[in-house]
Design a protein around this nucleic acid. Sequence first.
RNA 1: GGGCGCAUGGCUCAGUUGGUUAGAGCGCUACACUCACAUUGUAGAGGUCGAGGGUUCGAAUCCUUCUGCGCCCACCA
Length: 894
Amino acid sequence: MNDIPSRYNPKETEDKWYKFWEEKNLFSAKVNPAKKPFCIVIPPPNVTGILHMGHALNNTIQDILIRYHRMKGEEALWMPGTDHAGIATQNVVEKSIAKEGLKRQDLGREKFIERVWQWKEQYGSTIIHQLKKLGASCDWSRTRFTMDEEYSKAVLEVFVRLYEKGLIYRGSYIINWCPRCSTALSDEEAPHRDLQGNLYYLRYPFKEEFRGLSQKGTVPYIIVATTRPETMLGDTAVAVNPKDKRYKKYIGKTLILPLVNREIKIIADSMVDMQFGTGAVKVTPAHDPNDFLLGKKHNLEFINIMHPDGRLNENAGDYKDMDRFEAREVILEDLKEKGFLEKVQPHRLSAGHCYRCHTIIEPYLSEQWFVKMKPLAKPAIEAVKKGKIKFYPKRWTKVYLNWMENIQDWCISRQIWWGHRLPVYYCKKCKAVTVSKIKPEKCSACGSGDIYQDEDVLDTWFSSWLWPFATFYWPQGLSPQGTVPAEDLKYFYPTAVLVTAPEIIFFWVARMIMAGLEFMADIPFRDVYIHGTVRDIEGKKMSKSLGNIIDPLEIIDEYGADALRFSLISITAQGQDVYLSRERFQQGRNFANKIWNAARFVLMNLDPTQIRVDLCEFFKSQDLDIVNRWILSRFYTTLKQVSKALDNYRFNEAANLLYGFFWHEFCDWYLELIKPEIKERRNQVIMYKILEKFLRVIHPYMPFITEEIWQRLPHMGESITIQPWPHVQEQLIDKKAEKETDILFSIIKSIRNLRAEIEVRPEQKVVVSVYPQIKAAVNLIQNNQGLIRRLANLEELNLLDSSRRPQKTTSDIENKYAVIYLHFSGIIDIAQEQAKIKQGLQDQLKRKAAKEKLMQNPEFVKKANSEVVKKMADEIKELEEKIKRLEKLTDELH
RNA sequence: GGGCGCAUGGCUCAGUUGGUUAGAGCGCUACACUCACAUUGUAGAGGUCGAGGGUUCGAAUCCUUCUGCGCCCACCA
């Protein structure tokens, strides 16, 4: 009689509806002055990316927002795309050609880049397909890639503008160098991790006293401490603090650098911490950022001892071509042998690690390009301080500001091939630098045609920081095919909200704010929502290397995308980390199935001819019964709360509200209540309308199942994705009905409780007498006897007007509203009953005493909210009545 | 060294501006597959809200100190 299976099968629906949405272009957004724009730019995943739980969380949140605002009638645009991810992608392709026994150098730059593009064509859209599996409603027709021709123009434009403004400069500085990737990295790309290492104490002998020391008996050497002994080969000084009494007399003296036999001076600088190590520090200006500063200040020699790949170079003498860590061991051996090693102490230290390959980075002196950040940071700090951009949760504001206020210049050149090549040209003749978007014919200084382009490419983030406007074809404002009109940028920018993870704040969020203000003269987004990190059940971050990954695609396969989405969101408190296990997804699957079966039930019992009516009109024309008034009220109350929660980025709250409403109110109570009279018009209309509206409201969370059901309903419109978000009908919110059903339900629950307690078989009908404790309950019970009888499985229901315990009573129970007596031919355990009553009496007395004490406190009466005081007084009155009744009962039982 | 987060029933967590008897999911116990759903239903057990101190008529909630766990930042040779 009906063709709906009793289990929801996501596999049969998800791909089908996604295809449908795409075919109908339901996700495309256009400039529409009649509508409010709502735009989110996706944090572009790496082209090398495959969907992990972090993506799943990040994109589910964005999809919920986009679908919600689309239904609210805004012009919702979710701008998708991918990031060329310079280092990561180059690494992947290098690995792939390594299978053919090739290195990128074998291919040469051009051929290698060709291979990367080939790779991108083949695998670069994997993540896009996976996002579609998730249900992401991006406007795919706009998909951008940071290496697109037009996008690249924007990148070069920005470089040139900043250069011309004097904000980009080139210079030799100590930067983070990854020997494995063989490139410079920004500070953000080289996060510090703690390591267990050693502090090595080395003896540097004095030159003057070198020979005759043993006779004089003075200290023949100064001891310096270092964690990287191999860098001693590049030492050009030893520094002490000028205030340090121990060393004052040695300042200006000369030492002989062991193994190398270089003469180095002892210099004084207040930078030296007297407390650390021996208070004397070896200075390696080419291999340590602090030493670099000292080197500049004291005009020291800069000796680079390392090849870019981490092996030592010709300046390392005998240690040439050894790997840095191998050299460390050999050097230590040699130092030890020659008596220059004083001691070795275990030492916790932290070192930068390449964020792509996790190799320990080397502070390395090299010529790089930098962006001066302070001038860019200033307005970006202001924008957040003034509240033009808001972080959710708020606490990230401080993290952002702290970083921005201490911002360092940004190293943007990378010594790799895959990326935007610097628009910088050098003249072979006069060495002048020409910076130009398009390759210049000749040197801007001397006019020579003998020029060549810088080999370096730009940091990937130097392109991603333009994402919120470069995706709209800034600065031309027009896509090459003219498919994206110039007005788009104006209409959709600034975007509404950026959704991302905390570790991206510095990399991307902060820089987008700076770029937006600099190039668009406006903030790129109004809100920043920072969600938590996805962890496993033990709290460890999910990562491939730990092997604790839960693959979202497997979850989709097993439970469905809706289940994945719903579960993920319902356990993610705002901004808190998420602890996941596979079992957690059962909740979402079960909920989907519940919705499925409720819809199935409604459809099985639906007469489509009855329901074509406007809900409000229908409501006005009818004298609706309490049950329908209640469920309408509950729906609209929930809707109101859900909208509010979504507006405040409280996604889990909205999810849980919807879950509770649908499962425990609509299914458990409402559908059960109307079952016998389900064909009545009022029930037909209300159950249908609520189901239909509920589907819309849960749709942002569970797009697939809601579409599947929607399509089976006698619906209007082609897809649920573009149905309007229901309006809150305030006039249907009926607190009185809610209160009254609470009375009915608690009476029914109490009876059920009673039955269970004395183990009445479920099929056994019993007789129950009810003595209402509040006036409102009397009529209510009277008018809803049938309902109570059915849900509590009663033979007969008597309404008492006296609290006298009726004859043949087996057991009783009381709740806020009534005392309930159950008549059943079982055995009455008088003692047990007495104990129960006694206990109840004592509880009530205690509660009454507590409340009376509060009421006798003049401070309370004076200061507390009058509503609270009144409530308290009412409660005392109620308690008094209950106590009176209980006392009477005790007497009777004696 | 600086900053942030977390600590609530066996487990994982909610608890918005302080206000009745602190909630949910999972797990557990008992009962129930004729009636949309066993991916289910009904009922139940289980918490002195990490510790001390303070503010307040009133604190899981605000302040403070401490303890434990986790994270971020920093030029700790």
